[in-house]
Design a protein around this nucleic acid. Structure first.
Lengths: 326, 326
DNA sequence: TTGTAAGCGTTATCAG
DNA sequence: CTGATAACGCTTACAA
């Protein structure tokens, strides 16, 4: 790897001059600039970001912390973040936290040690000390906080929406699947759904679950129809669980949506490819990722911040696991 | 952020001594070590990785380049890589290449600039110049090369397997969906399938496709049944496309597997949650990710390398989109 | 057993 | 307009 010194040598100037043309600041005679650029090309030189980072005490690195990239909702967020960051030449150091405090701290720690200039985190505890102490900008993604920048969807309204739509379409004995209690957005949507069902005075059941894992989803779907065989409407905690419910209904010979309606949450890409395709509450995940990146960039580059948090509206995607209504 | 100097000051020793206790090399008196450790704790000091990296000309960073994390096959690979890397305290700089040469070069470039000590890449062109010139270890993931370390699945055999299984289960007019021509593994499985179908002297049709995108998948599924309405067996290029085919079959009132059998490829987590659940060719994605990481670690840490490439066998997962056979 | 100092590749300050 | 040089935080000879 050629260094700035090599370039300086070849161009017959000092390293300071090379640095100037590199960064486009200070005065450099046109002829000198030519020579330097020539040398740069000849040596195929690119600046050492580590040295830069050491001197400037900041890098072009951003930390991205997600619970689990294997959950189909997160790749979209990640992609949104990445695409926006790319545009401003930031790179991501990426980690999965598994919603585990230790891992999370570990990552935040190494992010700092590597001079990241900002962090985007999808954590269940934005109030944690490690975040409070942070001296660099952070944006919470998919999770709410009152006092720190965050980008999230209106989960509560999403829950309400799901309930309203499934009721409007005729379900009378609704089962609401409650996602993991420690996952904020999961609880929001759950509470929203309960709120509406209660308001309407409808009977409802709740199935508690503790993860969004693929394998466990099947078990919950089985529990659901075993415990509440007469349910005619299921509001799932996310699209994965909804898929499992749809499959179990199929296995039991229940017709969807005639016998049971199902509404998911997230609108992951695969839900439209299910048969029947899954009605769900759409969260603009890619957009949210981009927006989190946008916000963080503003924070990092010290521009004027219009508002430090953004809540995205969600909406109902009518597909085939709910009945038609006119 | 406390620096090594602060620690030295507080402990009343030189920075060299602190460095020694930090790295556990050289002689340090027990009492001194105590004092230093005390100071470290008091100041909540953690070493600046950037400074370390600059001096040592290497870091604890590894580059991971994937085509598109949004394709459900890749999160598994990524997770495998991450989990293994984590165990040895490596962090990932992550990027999506979109199978785009420019982006790929750009990422590799910045990886180098950031002193990554190794790279894992899932590229269509492992022979590219940028890879040949690399002075750090690289492992190609999900893609074959003869002369560089790589971890991949036996796609060709996978294609053969799919064909054999679907034939064994009675399909007579098979349609093989050919994935993007520039994606190596896609072509391998395609060729494997063709090989077997030809061998058996069965008539078959080919539907060419150009991407694995969710939205386009629907279009291809429609094309498929429009062009080959009598097909009774579909070998899809991956599970996404298979889902789309399954859905389209459902829409057209075809029974699966009675009228049409469908076999996918990859065995992404969601395929077992489809209704009917998808028969597919399983690739051990998570394992492969881990193995790629393992190999790279060996390469980076200069241990003895047993073999520099690893091909994983694939196997048929019998689920419900294929008929039973005894 | 410990300290001094050079050096990693940059950038920025200050003379010239 | 250009060149020396200190400094960023750390590791490692080399001295003591």
């Amino acid at each position: 790897m050629a260094t700035i010194k090599d370039v300086a040598g070849r161009a017959g100037v000092s390293v300071a001059t090379v640095s100037r043309v590199l960064n486009g600041n200070g005065y450099v005679h046109e002829d000198t600039r030519q020579k330097v650029e020539e040398a740069i090309r000849a040596l195929n030189y690119t600046p050492n970001e580590v040295a830069r980072s050491l001197y400037k005490k900041k890098s072009k690195l951003v930390g991205l912390l997600l619970p689990d990239i294997t959950n189909p909702y997160f790749p979209q967020l990640a992609r949104g973040v990445e695409d926006r960051m790319q545009e401003n030449d930031y790179r991501l150091i990426f980690g999965n936290s598994d919603e585990n405090r230790e891992k999370e701290m570990d990552y935040i720690q190494t992010f700092i040690q590597n001079h990241v200039v900002g962090i985007i985190s999808s954590t269940n505890d934005p109030g944690a000390e490690m975040y409070a102490e942070l001296r660099i900008p952070i944006v919470f993604l998919d999770r709410t906080t009152s006092d720190r920048p965050s980008v999230y969807a209106d989960g509560r309204e999403g829950g309400r929406l799901a309930a309203r739509e499934i009721i409007k379409r005729g379900s009378k004995r609704i089962t609401i699947i409650q996602g993991p209690a420690h996952v904020g957005p999961a609880m929001d949507r759950y509470e929203g759904a309960v709120e509406v069902v209660r308001e309407r005075g409808l009977p409802y059941d709740v199935l508690k679950t503790t993860s969004f894992s693929f394998t466990e989803a099947e078990g919950w779907a089985q529990d659901l129809f075993r415990l509440y065989p007469d349910t005619d409407g299921v509001i799932a905690s996310n699209d994965i669980v909804a898929s499992a419910v749809l499959q179990e209904a199929f296995r039991l010979g229940k017709r969807v949506p005639e016998d049971v309606q199902i509404i998911g949450f997230d609108d992951i890409p695969l839900s439209r490819l299910l048969a029947p395709s899954l009605s769900t509450i759409h969260q603009p995940a890619y957009e949210m990722g981009r927006e989190a990146a946008e916000l963080l960039i503003q924070l990092m580059e010290g521009q004027h911040i219009e508002r430090k948090s953004k809540q995205y509206p969600v909406h109902f995607i009518e597909r085939q696991t709910t009945r038609k209504v006119d």
